[in-house]
Structure formats: C-alpha cells, structure tokens
Simulated assay, not measured.
Amino acid sequence: MTDNTTRLDHIVLWVDDPLAAAGFYEKTVGLEPVRLTEYSAGEAPFPSVRVNEETILDLMPRAKAERMGMVPGAAESSGHPVNHVCLSLAASDFDALRSRLEEGSVPVSDVSRDSFGARGSARRSFYFRDPDGNVFEARHYD
C-alpha cells in the first residue's frame, strides 16, 4: 500500500449486553461512548465506543446474530471473536489503562517487550479480555 487513503473505520464486537459493554469500555478502557443514548431509547441498533477520531468499536448485541444474513456464515461468527484487537496508546495512557484494569480486577497478561506491529517494534504490550471474552492487546511505541 503506497498511499494513506485506507483507514480502519470500525470493528464489530459481539457482546451480550451492549450497555454493560459500553460501560466497561468507557470506565475501564477509557473510550468515549457513541450513540449510547440513542441505543437506550431504541433509536439505534447498537452503541459504539470511539477509539480515535477515525475508528470506533461497534458493540453488537449477540442476540442479533440470527439476523446477520448479508454474508453467508455471518451468524455463525457470533461467539467466535477475532484473535485480538490491538490498541496503540501513549506510554502514560498505557500505564493508566493497566492500572484501571488491575483496579477493576480484570486479569492482564505479563508485559511483553519489542513486539512487532503496524508501526514497527512496540516498547511494551499486554493483553486483557473484555467481559464478553473479546481479547485486546494494549501497546505503546514511544
């Protein structure tokens, strides 16, 4: 890829309770909720959380899996999360996230060093799971 016109727009995560998931991502991970009020009012099919100005995580209710007929096999993906999603943070945000996770009794992996990613070798990284079993990696490059 030689130009920078391709961006990651969103990732859809299957969750049991979108409001609880949004709460976890807001309070523990530090991501801003999007369309939470609209979802609660029945005006949006799912809420999201903002990763950055260009990327969100959609929190799709697992109960909607049976209606995922637009792609063959999509309904069967419910309950089978991707291997993991990686969040790249500044070093101070990395440390703050790890502290919030530990304070919230969310299990975290040991810290790894110099793991490869989109921007080269990350200084530190660790893994954690959200309440629905989706696995995340947190890392920083600086």
Rank of each mutant, 00 (worst) to 15 (best):
A122I: 03
F126N: 07
R119Y: 15
A91W: 00
V108M: 10
G117W: 06
Y127H: 13
R100N: 12
D132I: 05
E137S: 03
A90C: 04
H140P: 13
A91S: 14
V85K: 11
L89H: 08
D142V: 01
R98T: 05
E137P: 03
F128S: 08
V106S: 09
F126Y: 15
F116M: 14
F116Y: 10
V111G: 02
V111D: 00
F94P: 08
G133Q: 02
S115C: 13
F136S: 06
S109M: 03
G117Q: 07
A138G: 07
R119F: 14
G120S: 03
D142E: 14
R139I: 03
S109I: 04
F136C: 13
R123N: 12
P107L: 09
V135F: 08
G133M: 03
D114F: 04
S125A: 10
V85I: 13
G104E: 15
D95C: 04
V85M: 04
S99P: 05
D95N: 05
S92T: 12
A122P: 12
S112D: 14
E103A: 15
R124F: 04
R100G: 12
D130I: 01
P131M: 08
G120T: 04
L101R: 10
G120A: 10
V108F: 12
F94Q: 02
D130H: 08
H84E: 06
D95S: 06
D130R: 12
P107I: 06
G104S: 15
F136L: 08
R129D: 12
V85H: 07
D132L: 03
L101I: 07
D95P: 01
D110L: 01
D95E: 10
S121L: 15
G133N: 09
F136H: 14
G104H: 15
Y141G: 11
G104T: 12
D95W: 01
Y127I: 01
L101H: 00
G120R: 07
S121R: 14
V106I: 14
L97G: 11
H84Q: 13
L101Q: 05
H140L: 08
F128I: 05
L87A: 04
L89V: 02
E103F: 07
D95L: 05
D95F: 09
